[in-house]
């Protein structure tokens, strides 16, 4: 073997070694989560740190799904996340369209405002929002959460939608307007259908963000009935901190919708992130 071949072989060995290490790092925690959730409670203490338990069981999932409030939490989270995703997408489509197609007074300030909201600490808003929402009956209510999440996600979603609108030639809605359409009709019938991938990506992003939000849900919701999955899981953890099997089973369940949406949106990750990183 020549030196060059050796060098190449060395390069590829290194390459795959690094990648294998990172894949292990990325997946191991999830593997472990899943493993613990399948371990029977009796074996947890004796076999807690084995790579695979000697016996597996689905009973933790059964318990979580039938004897706990998790189905309620799950449903609440779905309601909140889906509503937020739809609402944000509608509102951000409008704003993104305005930013993409019009020059108007105040545009600079609107963009500036949206950029700033991406920078400031949202925890700042916890106390005032709580005080404003209490008299309005928006605490302990899913509607309150939806409103908060919608507002928080609009700026990023707007930039994302704008980048999709920018990719659609202006000629198209002009042609439609000449064909006899109102601008709004052209927007609905011509532009929006062409932005479907962008809409899907925005829905996915916002859904995932709303599904994962913890702090405002903790602060604004105290009733179990209105708790979302993150809050439910966290209270479950602090209350029954020994029931690892059930907690991890609940964790795996919480993971599923987020992962589903992740696969829906992963093609747009790069665009989304660059929209966020460069503009935000």
């Amino acid at each position: 073997m020549s030196a060059a071949t050796l060098k190449r072989a060395g390069y590829w060995t290194m390459h795959y070694a690094i990648i294998a290490l990172y894949v292990a790092f990325a997946l191991f925690p999830l593997y472990w989560l899943f493993k613990v959730s399948l371990t029977p409670t009796k074996l947890l203490y004796s076999e807690g740190v084995r790579m695979w338990p000697s016996r597996t069981t689905w009973e933790n999932y059964g318990f979580v799904l039938t004897n706990s409030d998790f189905p309620r939490f799950f449903l609440n989270s779905v309601i909140v996340s889906v509503s937020t995703a739809v609402l944000v997408t509608v509102v951000a489509s409008g704003a993104g369209y305005a930013l993409s197609r019009f020059r108007f007074r105040g545009k600079f300030w609107l963009v500036g405002l949206m950029l700033i909201t991406q920078m400031f600490p949202l925890v700042m808003l916890i106390s005032p929002i709580f005080r404003i929402f209490t008299p309005l009956g928006l605490t302990d209510s899913l509607l309150g959460l939806i409103i908060v999440y919608t507002a928080f996600n609009i700026p990023f979603a707007t930039f994302l939608m704008q980048s999709f609108f920018d990719g659609i030639p202006k000629d198209l809605e002009e042609a439609a307007m000449i064909d006899g359409a109102h601008r709004f009709t052209a927007f609905r019938q011509i532009i929006l259908p062409l932005t479907l991938p962008g809409i899907a990506a925005t829905l996915g992003f916002v859904f995932t963000a709303a599904w994962s939000e913890l702090l405002f849900a903790l602060m604004l919701i105290s009733k179990t009935d209105a708790s979302t999955f993150p809050v439910g899981l966290l209270t479950f953890v602090s209350k029954f901190s020994v029931d690892f099997g059930q907690m991890t089973a609940a964790g795996v369940l919480a993971l599923i919708p987020a992962c589903l949406f992740f696969f829906l949106i992963q093609r747009y990750l790069v665009r989304g992130l660059t929209a966020g990183a460069v503009k935000g």
Binding site: Y22, V23, A26, L27, P29, L30, W32, L33, V36, T208, W211, S212, L214, P230, L233, L234, V237, F244, M247, T248, G251, A254, L255, A258, C259, F261, F262, Q266, L269
Partner: peptide, 20 residues
């Protein structure tokens, strides 16, 4: 595969590491 952690809700990745 390597992008999967990003899909995990942040609080859940916290809890998961607390368990680990």
């Amino acid at each position: 595969l390597v992008f999967v952690p990003w899909a995990v809700p942040m609080f859940l990745s916290g809890l998961n590491f607390a368990w680990l």
